[in-house]
Amino acid sequence: MRAFALHLGFEFRIGIRNKTLMLMNYLFPLGCYVLFGSLLGQVNPGFLAIIVPAMSVFAIMSGALLGMPDTLVSARNAGIFRSYKINGVPALSLLVIPVLTSMMHALVVALVIAATAPALFGGESPRNWAGFLLVFAAAAFALAGAGALIGVVSANTRMTVLLSQLVFIPSMILGGLMLPVSILPDTLARVSRILPTGYAMDAFAGLAMGQDAVGAWLSLAILLAAGAIAFGLAALLFGWDPKNTTRRAHPAWAVLALIPYAAGLVLYSV
């Protein structure tokens, strides 16, 4: 347990020392927060009602999808995991700790956003802080689980970028971060149901921001299930070494991580 705590502390500090991680964990989400708050708040005043949850989800995505997977792939391909293995570092620590630190960095950014948005841009604060933290934890778990899975199944950093962007860009556009899903055409609204951000925004609206949202608890459950399945698959498919091709299952099994979102699509269509 002492080793785990020490590892967690080192990994958290690395997330600040490492320039790429610093960029993805802090500078990029905070920079975008200032930019979107200034611009979108003027163009679309409705954005100010969701600026705190939207930019919190953005911060989670930045660290979990754009930062963490690349670090996992680089560490594995550089032989860092091999060094860890021969020194008795458990595989589970190599997945749990990046997921936890990614959530911790995103929480710092989310708290900065929540504390400054009302004063800087006239944004709305969460009405239920316990609900905010609960939904934040669920959304961060779902997205960090997806990030860990992308890192585990990607053979190289190019593949990581491709898979991460496949989740990140549609989530930005269709996930309810900038525009409410309700104004999207039906087909695109359905697409948003296979993205974690749509569920996160629903849950934030209903459980933290005091807005009307159908199925906020269902969305929360879907996020938790998605996080658990993605993380379980990442643990199953984890490899220490790019040269060692022996693996427990084919990387294509990663698509099973979409099951909770597919279930959500069906449930919300009924």
């Binding site: 080192f10 032989g79 860092i80 060094s83 020194n87 008795g88």
Partner: peptide
Amino acid sequence: ASALPDSFRVGEAMRFFCAYH
């Protein structure tokens, strides 16, 4: 062929591996 994370400090690396042992 092995490596440690780029931003690991020398003393941290020793504390880290000793903790796992």
